[in-house]
């Protein structure tokens, strides 16, 4: 049932994107979205899909907030006439263990103020993060653990 509703929503988005609101185009969009949903059907079959939607949206909101904040922080740092940098790479112990979640966390970390994920260890337990201000790595680690990582756990577990 949710699949049909989703394909209908996607079809409407398709009509909006292509910009021609004819019946043919709507049907074509519907066929296209049904096909693409059929391709990802195994990932979709998880239970509690709609409940997670809310948490997922809150993760998205957090993401945009952090993006704006980090662009601002970089701006302030760069425009400061005396740049005092203490860059460095620290190891962050991961709690999430699935590939998909690690990818998401790494991307989010890259967009947080002053941090950039560099590499993941072979056993997927540690994420190496480059920080522009590494004088207090423990505080940064705590921020990530209580912020993004917890949100990801809420949204996808």
């Amino acid at each position: 049932m949710t699949t049909y509703i989703l394909s209908l929503v996607f079809a409407v988005i398709w009509v909006a994107v292509t910009g021609s609101a004819t019946l043919h185009n709507l049907i074509f969009g519907f066929a296209l979205s049904t096909l693409s949903l059929w391709i990802v059907r195994e990932q979709m079959s998880a239970r509690g899909y709609w409940q997670r939607m809310g948490r997922f949206l809150s993760l998205l909101a957090l993401f945009f907030k952090e993006l704006a904040l980090s662009a601002w922080k970089v701006a302030v740092l760069v425009m400061n006439p005396r740049m005092e940098l203490k860059p460095g790479i620290f190891a962050y112990p991961l709690t999430v263990d699935r590939d998909f979640e690690i990818t998401l966390l790494a991307n989010l970390i890259t967009l947080t103020p002053g941090t950039l994920s560099v590499d993941v260890s072979q056993d997927r337990r540690t994420l190496f993060v480059h920080a522009i201000d590494c004088s207090d790595a423990e505080a940064v680690k705590r921020d990530i653990a209580t912020g993004f990582e917890r949100k990801i756990m809420e949204a996808f577990r």
Partner: peptide
């Protein structure tokens, strides 16, 4: 992320002021 990983794997050094490099 890809660029940073490639650069670090190939051993491009961090700036001298860097405080640590746990990787």
């Amino acid at each position: 992320h890809l660029l940073a990983m490639a650069a670090h794997k190939m051993g491009y050094p961090l700036h001298e002021k860097s405080v640590r490099d746990e990787l």
